[in-house]
Design a protein around this nucleic acid. Structure first.
Length: 509
DNA sequence: TCTCTTCATTTCTAGACAGCATGTC
DNA sequence: CTAGAAATGAAGAGA
């Protein structure tokens, strides 16, 4: 037998049923899908073209998916465009796609039941110890996809074991084992401090007592049991928030001044103006402080778009950062040196535990910089190993963080920076160089078309106004050309009423 | 000297959701 | 404490 997975997959197809195959990494998921697709006799050319639809320049990954889908097989992981993911899910539900090879995410999200679930491996790379068994909960999530109650009375969940011993291990651990406890997500510090600030900012809680009271009712406290310890953690967070200037304490007794490291029960706590905005923006206070520190440094450095891109890249919100591979390390460091004067934060020492993250943030910023200099997606895939799906996630986060940074800059009265930030935000959103910005004001003009126009010497609305319709039609097609002229007419001289009226009255007769 | 093969060594590994206001190719 | 696929590199074969 060639390969267990392949065999099971083909058998499922011959039973005229569908299967989900869980793989531990993206590349394995893709490879498995490809292998199976080579053995099927389905043929859905229209699906294959649909995968590529809506992508200006399909990457290698897109083509790979396309050729799998053509044979009724698909892979599914976070690197896919959301549209591609939707397509795969929908076609699987419809029954066109027979098998999806995916990473464990699919189990967490959408409900996609299948007759058979095949789990290639129950181990997964975990940063700390190398390969490790996945949680029982996750196994249950995956296995739970087996069987579609509307169509079948049962389903099959198959786990593959390498050896006899492994199979025993899997049986004991997953089939007989107990799922592990659910730990309250509140316990994660970034969530906790965000939550804390929001409670204070919305005035649900005004004192330490209020807060403790509130948390004592949460699932977190229920698990933690030790309220005293919770108090200590909350105190630490409160002091942090105070240090950041997001909250302030005051005492009823005005003679009392607030000691640096002590919190009395009765202090009145409230959010500052900036603290409230941070909470509204749903930023992690640590991120917000990081952004503010950066902004305050803006006058001391050689400020460029890269400065902001790096600043926003080095935040929790941007996780996971683009990993710097061994081969790339030197190049990234070279860039780091080259751009030394542009950084809004201090470079940590090489020995710092944080250094890897810092380097990764530089890579992420470099990726964004290439993007706003109009690099194509397949180029980015090659250079940064970032898949189309991830590109869009990163851009969305960057947009959000730039918006937040701009809001903070506004509160800090840094008007001069505000303009830069707004420009940068548009550039990130559209992926264009600054020179194209005037053209982007028009509807129907994005990065591609604007570049086309610009290269023809049409660089702003004025140029566009003088260029004749024929040339414009040749460049962009008649419909769009006419529409653009109409937009320009409306914008530049808002009194073309005469013509309109004339035409209307002509029609009358 | 150059190309193709093969075997050994090294590298790399899953991912989601938040604000805001609408229209990309 | 643990894995395994893919990329890369080095050595070897053939021409």
């Amino acid at each position: 037998m060639l390969d267990d997975t392949l065999f099971l997959a083909l058998e499922t197809i011959s039973l005229n049923k569908q299967a989900l195959i869980f793989a531990s990494t993206r590349s394995i998921a893709e490879k498995t899908a490809e292998d199976i697709s080579l053995k099927t006799s389905f043929f859905f050319p229209e699906l294959a073209t649909q995968v590529l639809k809506g992508i200006s320049s399909p990457t290698k990954q897109c083509h790979r998916l396309s050729s799998c889908v053509k044979k009724g097989i698909a892979f599914h992981h976070a690197g896919l465009t959301s549209k591609q993911k939707e397509l795969v899910e929908e076609e699987f539900r419809k029954g066109t796609i027979k098998i999806i090879c995916c990473t464990p995410t699919l189990a967490m999200g959408m409900s996609l039941p299948a007759f058979r679930v095949i789990i290639k491996s129950l181990k997964r790379y975990s940063g700390k110890w190398g390969m490790d068994w996945i949680p029982v909960l996750e196994y249950l999530q995956m296995a739970g996809r087996a069987g579609r109650p509307e169509f079948e009375s049962y389903g099959e969940a198959i786990s593959l074991a390498k050896t006899e011993l492994d199979s025993l291990d899997i049986y004991n651990r997953y089939i007989c084992g107990q799922p592990e406890d659910i730990y309250s997500k509140l316990a994660v510090e970034p969530v906790l401090r965000t939550y804390l600030l929001s409670l204070i900012s919305t005035e649900i809680a005004n004192s330490r007592t209020d807060l403790l009271n509130f948390f004592s009712k949460t699932f977190w406290a229920h698990q933690f049991k030790d309220m005293e310890k919770i108090g200590v953690i909350i105190d630490r967070m409160l002091l942090l928030l105070k240090d950041f200037g997001f909250i302030e304490f005051s005492s009823n007794n005005s003679a009392d001044f607030v000691a640096a490291n002590q919190l009395a029960e009765n202090y009145f706590i409230r959010a500052t103006l900036i603290g409230r905005r941070v909470s509204e923006l749903y930023l992690d206070p640590v991120t917000a402080n990081h952004l503010i520190c950066g902004l305050n440094k803006s006058s001391e450095i050689n400020l460029t778009p890269f400065s902001f891109l790096q600043l926003i890249s080095h935040t929790l919100e941007n996780y996971p950062l683009l990993k710097v591979k061994v081969k790339e390390f030197e190049e990234v460091q070279e860039q780091l040196l080259l751009k030394k004067a542009q950084f809004l934060e201090n470079e940590p020492s090489v020995y710092d535990l944080d250094y890897d993250e810092f380097i990764s943030s530089v890579k992420t910023a470099l990726f964004l910089e290439y993007w706003i200099n109009e690099s194509e997606e397949d180029f980015l895939l090659e250079k940064f190993d970032i898949r189309p799906g991830e590109i869009h996630v990163k851009l969305e986060v960057a947009d959000w963080l730039l918006y937040s940074t701009a809001e903070l800059a506004r509160l800090l009265k840094l008007q001069s920076i505000l303009k830069d930030l707004n420009k940068l935000r548009i550039r990130v959103k559209k992926g264009v160089k600054e020179e194209l910005l005037p053209l982007l004001q028009l509807k129907g003009i994005g990065r591609k078309r604007a570049r086309k126009l610009f290269n023809r010497g049409i660089r702003n609305l004025g140029d566009l106004n003088t260029v004749d319709l024929t040339t414009l039609s040749q460049l962009l097609g008649t419909t769009l050309a006419l529409d653009l002229k109409k937009q320009l007419g409306a914008e530049i001289k808002p009194v073309p009423e005469k013509q309109t009226l004339g035409q209307l009255s002509l029609k009358k007769y």
